[in-house]
Amino acid sequence: MIRTDGLIAELAGDLEPVERLRPPLLRASLWLGVIAVLSVVLIAGFADMPVFMHRAQDSKMMLELVGTLLTGILAVIAAFELSLPDRSPRWAFLPVPSLLLWIGSSSYNCWRQWVVAGPNGYGAGEGLDCFTWIVAFGVPLGISLFVLLRRAKPLAPIPVAAMAGLGVASIAAFLLQFFHPFDVTFIDLALHLAAVFTVVIVARAAGRSGLNALRD
């Protein structure tokens, strides 16, 4: 073998200074901050705020919104943490409570809508448009997030990518609520979740090559 001695000499001989990555929480906050600014511009320019404010008066609707947004924020933080070699895989559980809150409150709201509206409360509202929205917003958000996560060259890229996918899809689902002038039905909710799942699957597949700098 050229032996490990030779390899060490070669690695040390070619050594170049590297820029140390900033703490993951700070990097996540910077990305979330930029997305927050862009979201405010989008909402201020295009959202139907009176309708949204009317819907947001319902505390259960607010609970759903909080669950959606928290899932997005926590999943993005978890993705940054998981991208580093020495962080616990348990970070993957960080968004689970808020995800349960989101799904639980959405399901309750759907059930209530069904009870109030009868059979009309069960059919599809504009669920397909919502699906398109979440995927269309989730993918570019995901690409921008991948660019940052890639710098860590994750040793296990697939969980990182899946977590990033959950984060961006949840943020897209949260933004959707500002452009969603009706209460969701079960079919709508299923399509929302299907869209989130689609983004997670796409991100997971993309992560295999997009984040895996160590592939061999």
Partner: peptide
């Protein structure tokens, strides 16, 4: 060598 930028002192 590849991931040395991820070490936080």
């Amino acid at each position: 060598h590849r991931v040395r930028n991820t070490y936080d002192p």
